[in-house]
Amino acid sequence: MWKEKYKIGVERIDQQHEELFRRVEDFIKSVRSEGEWELKQEKVKETLEFMSMYVVTHFADEEKYQQEIHYPGYEEHLQLHIRFKEEVGKYVARFNDTGFDEELVQEFGGKLMAWLIYHVAGADQKIGAYAARLGGGKE
């Protein structure tokens, strides 16, 4: 899933993005793997938790980095992170309510993938462009 073009030119953020993509990919692969849903549920739950934990860590780090470089789009970007965490939280609540319904988890997987690509290939690139102007990122 990860592509080199998603890099923003700030090493520590790029490494985290690559890790985040890997975890989302692991989650999606477990959701889409062959076999009975009941049998793979444990793996799905595990990869979902592993991914969600990293989202929180990465968002916090990325927000910290934005503050360090006095990124002017910080507040706006923070709202994107908050909304995303809310969305994930809503899905997790629905997973619990529906007894981890397969269709719902598939739906979440598709949305998560598109959102992550859009976010990293879009909003995050602006952080890279700003850092580059400060002399810290890619040209």
Binding site: Q106, E107, K111, M113, A114, W115, Y118
Partner: peptide
């Protein structure tokens, strides 16, 4: 489209594919 984004082979219009497409249109 979903294959390009996910790097995975897709063979039917299932909930995952439909949802990814819906999100692209939403964006």
């Amino acid at each position: 489209m979903v294959k390009i984004m996910s790097g995975m082979e897709m063979d039917k219009l299932d909930s995952f594919v439909a949802s990814a497409l819906g999100e692209v249109a939403n964006i």
